[in-house]
Design a protein around this nucleic acid. Sequence first.
RNA 1: GUGGGUAUAGUUCAGCGGUAGAGCGCCAGAUUGUGGCUCUGGAUGUCGUGGGUUCGAACCCCACUACUCACCCCA
Length: 425
Amino acid sequence: MLTKVPKGMKDVLPAESALWRAMESAMRQAALLAGYREIRTPVLEHTELFARAAGETSDVVRKEMYTFLDKGERSVTLKPESTAGTVRAFLESGLYAQALPLKLYYLNAPHFRYEAPQSGRLREHHQFGMECFGAAQPTAEAELIVLVVNLLAGFGLPNLAVRVNSIGCPKCRPAYQEKFRTYLAGKADSLCKNCVERAQVNPMRALDCKEERCQAQLADAPMMLDCLCEECQEHFEQLKRLLTLSGIRFTVDPRIVRGLDYYTKTVFEVTMETPNGVLTVCGGGRYDGLVEELGGPSIPAVGFGFGMERALMLLEQLPQEERRLQAQNEFPQVFTAFLHKGLLTDAFAVTENFRKAGLRADMDHQGRSLKAQFKYADKLGAPFMAILGDEEVEKGVVKLRDMTTKEEWEVALPEAPQALQKRLG
RNA sequence: GUGGGUAUAGUUCAGCGGUAGAGCGCCAGAUUGUGGCUCUGGAUGUCGUGGGUUCGAACCCCACUACUCACCCCA
């Protein structure tokens, strides 16, 4: 147990963290260009916040939350999604009183869901997400969808599928839900246990059911998309026009429902083909009622969550030459080797000198033989060696060796960093 | 919650009733001031835990635990 990471958690080791950083900077840049600024909210929120925001009937709230009592007997929860916390901060700080829209993004935010882990699904995962408050127009959705698609395409990821749907608003949805509930009631005998339950609490969820018999029963079910009020209809038409105009290939999927109850009008998903099936990389939508639901003024909003591990997983499956996201090199540019222990301090000084000049430099810390130092440097991938023996120290020089060409030459100690920089270009 | 699979060296795995193995990695030597390739040598194991069958169990049986994959749901 002691040396075992808790179930569903993952370490990001050095071999991978560089790629994470590359992805992060691409995200920051994209967000910046679209006028979004970073917000960081706590991992922990009052349980009540999620219950209220995501909805008591959602699977997330009902069975997937990391909830516990703190020492003050308050029920707190590790955030399973970030929209609720962002809205809370937005309200608490009074940011809503400033010029709207307010555009926020978060990056690398840890999220927790207590589920059975498997490929592409962890108990702790990290999301990049964007939220736009105070934008009622479909340009807000379009902006986000375009941004995500361009981002993923920019990584070199092919075969993205963008699916959009509208699930109506408080004006048109209740009538539809009633219609749908009636429809389900007539089929209750042929539906799975879950769907019978769904019919009561949130009938639209049945559309998401993967059971074949349910899908067969729902083949001619009424769709929200066909029952939208005039306003929702117009909103959706505009969004489609905007996406088409932006050159985004998308499909309308009337069956997208999303697992969180706060969505209104637009919902969307970006999915990708993987060896293990289709994975959702990004999911989001409009939540015009949530800010008010959480005690604020009536402010429309749109947002999405983007699973960073999932995107990284897909990227790692991509052949190296198709990847357009490249991790920064981390190997030392020069490795200082020294002949014997008596030259330890000289070697240390030389190494530090390289570092002062902004070069990635390293040396042995194990008392290895010269030969072993070369071997080690080779493993690290250092393209140059700086070699110190008694002769060199006496003459005040260091011998530089190009590991590829095996060429060696001597340079005066103080000039070594410059000489190397020249060679490295 | 339901159903598969797996558990042996640092790591990937082979062995499937009779002395615990290989590749990779690690260390050293061949080459006492020079890496990659090659060759030689070396170190490292409660064979997941507990019980049972047997003269004898890493191997067969049972239970447990952990991991993993899939379903549901999701990022």
